[in-house]
Amino acid sequence: MGNILEVRNLKKYFNTPKGQLHAVDGVSFAIEKGKTLGIVGESGCGKSTLGRTILHLLDSTDGQIFFEGKDITRVNKKELVKIREEMQIIFQDPFASLNPRMSVRQIIMEPLIIQGVMTKAEMEQETDQLMETVGLARRLSGAYPHELDGGRRQRIGIARALALNPKFILCDEPVSALDVSIQAQILNLMLDLQEERGLTYIFVTHDLSVVKYISDEIMVMYLGQMVEKAPADELFDNPLHPYTKALLSAIPLPDVHAKRKRILLEGEITSPINPKPGCRFAARCIYATQECAEPQHIVEISKNHYVSCHIAESH
């Protein structure tokens, strides 16, 4: 299967009073159709900005985005409407992203109305179908978002994203606001939908156990850059970048007998404003050497396992 989405050297800078903030700085990757790419990193690493730039919710500063082989980096308004049918988004906070004055049914139907190709009756039928697909009871049609719990609200968000039958969905922390028992219900729903509809996902999250469960490949970001990318199991079995290692060792495991060595990072993420060339993680890295001040290159260490660290390379 071919790649549905390819991103080349994508950059998104913001101008701030203190200088240029490099939110996304030269990220490249490709996703195969029907697969899930997990993007992990801590707050401020640029993972959400990356997703939103791909979706044209933000304009990119530099680089290219290809969707189904077509360059969509610069598009006019008409083309953008077309892209929106193919690429959708599910947000973290299902409450903030739903109009409080619209009923469940109106929210799910809205994309169909905007698209304007179906008759009223067809839209009604399609909405019923969508509600069933995501497991929302028919009796909730007239309910408003504030009457529902987080899990149901997120189901509305998913139904709305599915309405136009997209090929690609950006999931931006879709289960982070949910309790674990509800989180598992939503994750399973998303996997079912992917199987049934051949959807491709980018799954942005800070939760590493969730990302392992749902992703085929995982990309780790640090301060706007990709530091490592590998198939999900490979990344957890054989992390190469010092940051990935520290990140994985920091996850508290639900096992009272777990004994392991934790790599405690000193300090916190440094400022992404006017960053220096060289490895951005070096200031916190226990292995850092003088060479880390040089710009790092992404190297394929083994099949599909990429890392951006000269130390990891030499091992």
Partner: peptide, 23 residues
């Protein structure tokens, strides 16, 4: 038990989580 089964595990390869039904 349902809480534990709802958690994605890092050390095993399960195909599906077993959530607690309902709310």
């Amino acid at each position: 038990k349902g809480l534990f089964d709802s958690l994605p595990k890092l050390d095993s390869m399960e195909s599906r989580l077993k959530p607690i039904k309902g709310m």
